[in-house]
């Protein structure tokens, strides 16, 4: 693909992302006209219930969608590159399971008098981060001992299985009322992200994105396999630790604030590689930032069910859209996939 064509696709994606961002601000149960939304945004309106809705509810939600979409997609790229597996996504290392386990534990403890933590969203997020990071460090510790990526992948999936079974046991012994809190968390939610959370979420995701771009040269060489990468000068250990740290932090923090959001991380890297017809990581990572952000913003708009007063759980919408995308790409490129995976 020519450089000019690549640049045009980037321009188109940036415009798309911006349009969805504005559209997401316009969408919601309260009826606020697009013109009014813009004038509120540009500070031309006095404080009102509408400006409260825009600044306190919709802007945090749209910003969360933007950064979470970008962060999950880039984490997906990193995982697919590390494991050279098209099905890998941000959660294969088990970070979301670690977060889920901690959240489930908190919900259960909520029944034993520690419920004050549950009432503070940040408290719940903090425990989820502890869970995600604990699993990340466990995987990192194992990665020091296990040298091949396939074993690491299997171990990651096993850790995820292990934590989910513990979650299952906890669920079994939890009262239905408390259980509902946990179930709601697993639906994923962008509205749960408050403006204060963004001060934490945005810097972490941004650092992850910049860090990912900084290792793109090594990621490209990793396409040739672990041995070839080493022989072309890549410090395999260093790059693997960097990938685990970035994904653990980004996916862990995202899960903590918004719950486990499915499919975006797996689908977007495929979509981007297919769009740009390249495996070059500078293009794939940058493209995934714009595409991931756009797609999650679009999912958020759909989940608001414009024109109605109800909202769907974001996780169901991302799966409804993400799964057909993967199927479509695979069917479209069946020869490509058959010969390579």
């Amino acid at each position: 693909m020519s450089r000019i064509k690549t640049i045009w696709i980037f321009v188109a994606l940036a415009i798309l992302m911006l349009s969805f961002f504005v559209a997401d601000l316009i969408t919601g149960s309260a009826d606020i006209s697009p013109v009014k939304v813009l004038s509120i945004l540009f500070g031309q309106e006095e404080e009102s219930i509408h400006s409260y809705i825009i600044f306190r509810l919709r802007l945090p939600r749209a910003l969360a969608a933007l950064f979470i979409g970008a962060g999950l997609s880039v984490s997906g790229v990193l995982m697919q590159s590390l494991f050279r597996n098209p099905l890998a996504g941000p959660y294969v290392l088990g970070v979301s399971s670690g977060a889920s386990l901690m959240v489930a534990l908190m919900v259960m403890l909520g029944g034993t008098g520690l419920s004050f933590l549950l009432f503070s969203g940040f408290g719940l997020a903090l425990t989820a981060i502890v869970g995600a990071l604990a699993v990340m460090f466990l995987v990192l510790f194992i990665a020091i001992r296990v040298h091949d990526s396939v074993s690491l992948l299997i171990i990651g999936i096993m850790i995820a299985g292990l934590t989910s079974s513990i979650v299952g046991i906890i669920q079994y012994f939890t009262s239905p009322e408390l259980l509902q809190n946990y179930i709601v968390w697993t639906f994923g939610s962008l509205t749960a992200v408050e403006i204060g959370d963004l001060y934490f979420l945005i810097p972490v995701v941004s650092i992850g994105l910049i860090w990912s771009l900084s290792i793109q040269k090594s990621l490209n060489i990793l396409l040739l396999g672990d041995n070839n990468a080493q022989l072309l000068g890549v410090n395999l250990k260093r790059i693997r630790y960097a990938i685990i740290l970035i994904t653990g932090l980004v996916a862990g923090v995202i899960t903590a604030f918004a719950g486990p959001i499915a499919f975006i991380g797996v689908a977007v890297p495929h979509l981007v590689r297919n769009l740009f017809k390249t495996n070059n990581h500078f293009v794939v990572i940058s493209g995934s930032i714009f595409t991931g952000a756009s797609l999650l913003l679009a999912c958020d708009i759909i989940s608001q069910l414009p024109g109605t007063n109800i909202a769907l759980p974001i996780n169901s919408v991302t799966s409804l859209i993400g799964a057909p995308i993967i199927i479509w790409i695979i069917v479209k490129n069946k020869r490509l996939y058959a010969s390579n995976f």
Binding site: G225, K277, N279, F341
Partner: peptide, 10 residues
């Protein structure tokens, strides 16, 4: 090496 290269778009 004889390692398989898994990069369809390369």
């Amino acid at each position: 090496l004889t390692d398989h290269i898994n990069a369809p778009e390369m």
